[in-house]
Computed example of a mutant assay.
Amino acid sequence: MSAEPGTAAATVSDRWAVDPATIGPGDVLVLRALGLGDALTAVAPLRGVRRMLPGHRIVLAAPAGVGAWLAGLGVVDGVLPVPGLVPLPPTPGGHVAVNLHGRGPLSHELLLASRPERLVGFAAPAAGHDGPPWRPDEHEVHRWCRLVAGAGGPCGPEDLRLRDHRPAPGDAPVLIHPGAASAARRWPAERWREVAADLAADGHRIVVTGSPAEADLAATVVAGIDAAENRCGTLDLDGLARTVGAAAVVLSADTGVAHVATAQAVRSVVLFGPTPPAWWGPAVDPDLHTVLWHGDPAAQAWGDPHADRLDERLAAVTPAEVLAAARAQLGASRT
């Protein structure tokens, strides 16, 4: 995810932070120590956890800003702030632990060290844990819903939504989020600018978002376009979510903002490269989301999403394709 929470999100984190010394029977400790996009794919299984153990307090071990944002939305009840896959603070034990982070053994071992009464997780013989098998070619949302549903918490892709779809007002802007965490998933800025210029010529306002580190990237996209507004580096998570929610359509690569659009049922066009959309694409409301990908689903040979060079599948996506998909979604948004 490109946009990181700012000061406002840190203040909210203090509000939702849970003292580990209070985690015990009656609590569920869920590990998902990942970024925004990963956190949003976990909304559906987290709702399954709520159904599995109604009345329990759900504490999410996750980065502070993302965790606090989900707590503010009521998806979880509190946050145990952790920056990644690191040892958890000591707890009294007796709680239920749920591993939504990975298949182990390290993530399992970190949760087991918190002395839970029960661990819900995929099978990890190296950690001494028996559970359902991990399927490497499974969609991320379906994978975690399968785990939680099998443990007694029914859930599915429809639980990803944070709100119902709302028709966009006539003056709603097009949101372009050109950044991504790695070069492999970063479509060239000049191509985004071409799309932005053509949509502005159609009469649409353009809003560009990103992190402070992506200021030069955003400046390239909006250069010379009077109808384009650069909000790069100005938004915390709440502000980003509101901006996405107010857009007519969101254009981005396979990154956190795409998952925000899916969660808010906002129309989107998502450009995929090294990772197949069958694993990470929108899992609900297919009419609202257009996926552009030039990979071969039968090839079983994917690229490295963390590589430092543009993936060839993403490079094959043309501005004409993105423009056509955006115009189609914009046309549908007005009806």
Results as ranks from 00 to 15, higher is better:
Ala3Thr: 14
Pro5Ala: 02
Pro5Gly: 10
Thr7Ser: 15
Asp14Thr: 07
Ala17Ser: 14
Val18Leu: 12
Val18Asn: 05
Pro20Arg: 05
Thr22Pro: 06
Asp27Gly: 10
Asp27Thr: 12
Leu29Ile: 04
Gly37Glu: 03
Gly37Lys: 04
Ala39Glu: 03
Ala44Ser: 11
Arg47Asn: 08
Arg47Val: 08
Arg50Asp: 01
Met52Phe: 07
Pro54Thr: 08
Leu60Val: 00
Leu60Arg: 00
Ala64Gly: 03
Gly65Ile: 00
Gly74Pro: 00
Gly78Ile: 01
Val79Lys: 00
Leu80Trp: 00
Pro81Asn: 03
Val82Tyr: 02
Leu85His: 00
Pro89Phe: 02
Gly93Leu: 05
Gly94Ile: 06
Gly94Asn: 04
Gly94Asp: 08
Gly94Glu: 08
His95Val: 04
Leu100Trp: 00
His101Asp: 03
Gly102His: 01
Gly102Thr: 04
Arg103Ser: 09
Arg103Trp: 03
Pro105Lys: 00
Leu106Phe: 14
Ser107Ile: 05
His108Ser: 09
Glu109Arg: 15
Glu109Asp: 15
Leu112Lys: 12
Leu112Ile: 06
Ala123Thr: 10
Ala124Ile: 02
Pro125Glu: 11
Ala126Gly: 13
His129Ser: 11
Asp130Glu: 15
Asp130Arg: 15
Gly131Val: 01
Pro133Ser: 13
Pro133Leu: 09
Arg146Phe: 03
Ala151Met: 02
Gly152Gln: 08
Gly153His: 00
Gly156Tyr: 02
Glu158Thr: 13
Glu158Gly: 15
Asp159Gln: 06
Asp159Arg: 04
Arg161Pro: 00
Arg163Gly: 14
Arg166Ala: 15
Pro167Lys: 14
Pro167Tyr: 13
Pro169Gln: 09
Gly170Cys: 11
Asp171Thr: 10
Pro173Gln: 14
Ala184Asp: 05
Trp187Gln: 03
Pro188Gln: 13
Pro188Thr: 11
Arg191Ser: 15
Arg191Glu: 13
Glu194Tyr: 00
Glu194Phe: 04
Asp198Pro: 07
Ala200Phe: 01
Asp202His: 08
Arg205Asn: 07
Arg205Ser: 13
Ile206Gly: 07
Val207Tyr: 04
Val207Trp: 06
Gly210Ser: 10
Ser211Tyr: 09
Ser211Lys: 12
Ala213Leu: 12
Ala219Asp: 14
Ile225Gln: 12
Asn230Lys: 10
Gly233Arg: 06
Leu235Val: 02
Leu237Ala: 06
Gly239Arg: 08
Arg242Met: 14
Ala248Phe: 02
Ala253Lys: 06
Val257Leu: 13
Ala258Val: 01
Ala258Phe: 07
Ala258Trp: 03
Ala261Glu: 03
Gln264Lys: 06
Val266Leu: 11
Ser268Asn: 04
Leu271Lys: 04
Leu271Asp: 01
Gly273Ala: 05
Pro274Cys: 07
Pro274Ile: 09
Pro274Val: 08
Pro274Arg: 08
Thr275Trp: 11
Pro276Tyr: 05
Trp279Glu: 13
Trp279His: 14
Gly281Phe: 00
Pro282Lys: 01
Ala283Ile: 02
Pro286Thr: 01
Leu288Asp: 01
Leu292His: 05
His294Arg: 12
Ala298Gln: 10
Gln300Met: 07
Trp302Asp: 12
Pro305Asp: 05
Pro305Arg: 10
Ala307Met: 14
Asp308Gln: 13
Leu310Asn: 10
Asp311Val: 11
Glu312Tyr: 08
Val317Asn: 10
Thr318Gly: 06
Pro319Ser: 14
Ala320Ser: 09
Ala320Leu: 12
Ala324Glu: 14
Gln329Met: 11
Gln329Glu: 09
Leu330Ser: 12
Ser333Asp: 09
